[in-house]
Design a protein around this nucleic acid. Structure first.
Length: 848
DNA sequence: CATCACGAAA
DNA sequence: ACTCCTTCGTGATG
């Protein structure tokens, strides 16, 4: 322990008393088992340690290349320390004389690139790197990227040439760009992005600037079979230019409107005096420059194409991708499309999109056509608006696919809010609502399952609408939350719906399996990815304090934990750990006093109910009826007396609660990084994010010395890579003095323990029953009879079947609790005002 | 037409 | 390395 303490001190961080009541002894989460019980349990050390990352960051500030590589002061758990342990021959390269101005280190071994964020040319380098490399990790002072074939493909498909790439690599690199990296770029870009799939006048063309490539393709057996033979020659024409296309909601668009109003040409330099309110001016300029360069290139070029059979597109795409390693870029020349009716839609004049949204859209519409691809933005950063703006740019029929019926409705509302579309031109298509379009063009919003579920057993009107969707041509397809839907589903969707362009939207291109790669050729390359940390610094998404709270197991629980055979039982025991319960109680109380709105997440329904009823908080889970859900949510949003709600997995997606400012996790699913990110996303859009000194809070409650520790660190990996620092809290100061602390006596804890054991055994038994003839239905009906209606049904087989009487009692209670909320109270806005100042102050103190 | 049970899928 | 929760669409019911 001693060396680590020293390491923390060496960073020069002053040790401060944390006045908030949350104090954090020195801790290091890598050292798992080494923890001396006595050291962190009761001792209240006035020292905070914000994870290995910060030590690393501080060290980097004063770094010298020579000492950098051999610095071993940092524990192996550092997000980036692995970079410096392996052999690093790029340090042997002579540095360029002005290397201090250049922010890039390039590793010739693996195409890995490290970017210094404190460099003067950081922003430009970052814009460049986002185009050509995959972000691996972006911490405060150091960003890490990898150059992969795929990232290069994405680069080429947004219009960069290999010379651009190598030129800029050389520009930003501290050393000479290694020869093998150059060759790698050459090789890969040689084949990538050269060939495009274009839908023009209702016909599919394979198009390229390089006639030789097309001739090569035509010699291929599979491709030539898919060709529509009219003549042996390629069609050659002048390449399209960007000229004149403006994306709605941008300054350009405003300029054009103005110009039209005044009948005067827009002055080129008029923007110079208008400061960008989002601080992204520089990034924007780079982009404009980049676009201009690209136009120049296009001027010189001609395009060649040959037509292919519309029926065989998938075949051609797959063949080009897998066999020829020559992925087709999909582009839609929507302005030249006279076959499909135009849709009267535009952004409302007052709407201005943010710079990064514009940035993302420039990638999509960079050459005046709509490129298919994926845009990655954090939750709350306005993905919906990006989708809507894309629809407003294309101005053709568009189909929006969502994961749930709820977000379908949300999308419709957003369309009405941001655009001037005639509400009649929006049709919603879900199981309970089947609208039809009256005009030739319109927007259809529906769920994935509606479009992708198997044919056959369909209701009559469902089939009607499906026929409508499959029977026509769409200009744009927006795929919301692309990461949650499996590749197979996309395949079916893209097979059925004929669309000219596809836009995938997501917050995280992350899955625990490897299916995400399929998206690249089913939808397109990643066009843009925003930097979370940058967005939160700029106030577009909330600033978040993340903390992991370590709760020791009580002796009774721990000995049962050690004896437990099934993982199920183990996880239940660690979730139901009384100390964790107390920590949860304390944190809720603490944040409610500060005026925060708190959401507590639990994956385990049994634990959810126990916590919720024990702490007297309303809660929602899968079986909760629709009306009750709305009631609870509405109260959370409007009723000042309800500051905390508890949610199961239901809250992970599709619930939009901008009121929430604090989030507590008591149990979570294994190592799902996506879930963690999504939950964090719940509070990123906090309404009050722009208040002075405002912070959102994200707590993970972890039972010490259990599996939760392992999973928790796995789950955090993503957020740490995005630049979030996790504070480790081992003792909540003041918790001992808290009145009415739950499970304070041995007696209570034992009762809880027997309850938990009973529940886990019952769950196991039900599993067995399930194998029997009675099956799941048996358990369901049994619970049904007892619980009755009101949506407070019991999960099959937990507790309820054995602990009858008690169960009934708290059922009644739970019903009553939620009923109480029915009449919302008013006059709560006043209180919020009073809280504001206090919160800002408390926030400052809370923060180191 | 609002609500519930069922089966499927992930 | 490990299991469940949830959600959706459909059809039945008063």
């Amino acid at each position: 322990m001693a060396p680590k303490r020293k390491a923390a001190a060496a960073t020069g961080r002053p040790s401060k008393r944390v006045a908030s009541g949350v104090s954090t002894p020195v801790s290091n989460k890598d050292s798992d088992g080494e923890y001396g019980e006595s050291e962190e349990l009761d001792v209240d050390v006035d020292q905070s340690d914000i994870e290995a990352k910060h030590k690393y960051d501080n060290a980097v500030k004063k770094f010298q290349p020579s000492t950098y590589a051999k610095d071993t002061a940092y524990p192996s758990g550092d997000p980036a320390s692995r970079l410096f342990k392996a052999k690093h021959d790029f340090f042997d390269e002579p540095l360029k004389p002005d290397h201090r101005l250049r922010p890039l280190w390039i590793d010739r071994e693996n195409g890995r690139v490290v970017l210094e964020t404190f460099s003067p040319s950081f922003k430009r380098a970052q814009n460049f790197l986002i185009n050509i490399a995959e972000p691996v990790s972006r911490t405060t002072n150091m960003h890490e990227y990898t150059i992969t074939p795929h990232s290069l493909f994405a680069a080429v498909s947004v219009g960069l040439t290999k010379d651009d790439i190598i030129k800029d690599l050389e520009l930003f690199s501290k050393t000479k760009v290694p020869e093998n990296i150059k060759q790698f770029v050459h090789q890969v870009t040689e084949s990538f992005g050269k060939v495009r799939l274009v839908l023009k006048h209702n016909k599919y063309f394979v198009e390229s600037n390089d006639a030789k490539v097309l001739q090569m393709l035509l010699r291929d057996e599979v491709i030539s079979q898919c060709r529509v033979q009219e003549s042996d020659e390629l069609v050659t024409e002048k390449a399209a230019k960007k000229g004149g296309l403006v994306i709605p909601g941008t300054k350009d668009a405003a300029g054009v409107r103005e110009a039209q109003a005044n009948q005067q040409p827009k002055r080129e330099d008029e923007e110079d005096d208008s400061e960008d309110e989002f601080g992204g001016r520089e990034a924007e300029k780079d982009m404009e420059e980049f676009l201009r360069e690209e136009e120049d290139d296009d001027d010189l070029d001609q395009v060649h194409s040959f037509e292919i059979d519309g029926e065989k597109i998938q075949q051609v795409q797959e063949h080009c991708n897998v066999k020829l390693n020559l992925p087709l870029t999909e582009e839609y020349d929507f302005r030249a499309d006279e076959v499909n009716a135009n849709l009267d839609i535009d952004l409302r004049p007052s709407v201005q999109i943010r710079y990064y949204q514009e940035h993302a859209l420039s990638k999509m519409f960079g050459n005046g056509r709509a490129r298919s691809g994926i845009i990655v933005l954090p939750c709350g950063a306005g993905k919906t608006l990006v989708g809507i703006t894309a629809a407003c740019t294309v101005k053709k029929s568009a189909i929006i696919l969502c994961t749930s019926a709820m977000s379908v409705v949300q999308w419709r509302e957003e369309f009405k809010k941001w655009s001037n579309i005639n509400p009649e031109d929006i049709a919603v298509f879900t199981s309970n609502e089947k609208q039809k379009l009256n005009h030739r063009a319109g927007i259809v919003i529906c769920t994935y399952s509606m479009v992708s579920s198997k044919e056959g057993k369909r209701a009559y009107d469902t089939k009607q609408v499906m026929d409508f969707i499959t029977g026509r041509e769409w200009g744009l397809m927006v795929l919301d939350e692309v990461h949650v839907v499996p590749a197979e589903m996309f395949r079916r969707v893209t097979e059925r719906v004929k669309t000219h362009s596809k836009l995938g939207l997501t917050a995280t291109l992350l899955r625990e399996d490897d299916k995400i790669k399929d998206l690249n050729f089913l939808i397109g390359p990643k066009l843009y990815e925003a930097n979370w940390l940058q967005l939160s610094e700029e106030g577009h998404i909330a600033r978040v304090q993340c903390a992991e709270v370590w709760c020791p197991m009580t002796t009774e629980f721990y000995s049962e934990y050690l004896q437990a055979k099934t993982t199920n039982k183990r996880s239940l025991l660690s979730t139901m750990n009384p100390r964790k319960f107390q920590a949860c109680q304390f944190l809720i109380d603490f944040h409610e006093r500060r005026g925060d709105k708190v959401i507590v997440f639990s994956d385990n329904v049994y634990a959810l109910e126990k916590y919720a009823t024990g702490l007297r908080k309303p809660y929602i889970y899968g079986d909760t009826g629709q009306r009750e859900r709305e009631m609870v949510l509405q109260n959370f949003q409007q009723n000042d007396a309800v500051s905390t709600i508890m949610l199961s997995k239901i809250g992970d997606t599709s619930l939009d609660l901008p009121e929430a400012t604090c989030l507590i996790q008591i149990s979570s699913h294994y190592g799902s990084r996506r879930q963690e990110a999504q939950r964090l996303g719940r509070i990123l859009r906090a309404k009050r994010r722009n208040d002075e000194g405002f912070n959102a809070f994200f707590y993970s409650l972890v039972s010490k010395d259990t599996n939760e520790m392992y999973y928790s660190s796995k789950r955090q990996a993503f957020l740490v890579d995005q630049g979030y620092a996790f504070k480790v809290i081992t003792h909540l100061n003041g918790i001992d003095r808290m009145p009415n602390l739950a499970f304070a006596t041995q007696q209570e804890r034992m009762t809880l323990l027997t309850d938990v054991l009973l529940a886990s055994e019952t769950a196991a038994e039900t599993e067995n029953i399930k194998d029997d003839l009675f099956g799941d239905n048996y358990a369901r009906k049994k619970n049904k009879g007892k619980g009755g209606r009101g949506g407070v049904k019991r999960q099959a087989g937990t507790l309820s079947s054995l602990a009858g009487g008690e169960d009934m009692a708290y059922l009644e209670y739970a019903k009553g609790r939620n009923k109480e909320l029915a009449k919302p109270r008013n006059a709560f806005f006043r209180k919020e005002d009073r809280n504001k100042e206090r919160r800002a102050k408390a926030n400052r103190e809370m923060l180191e």
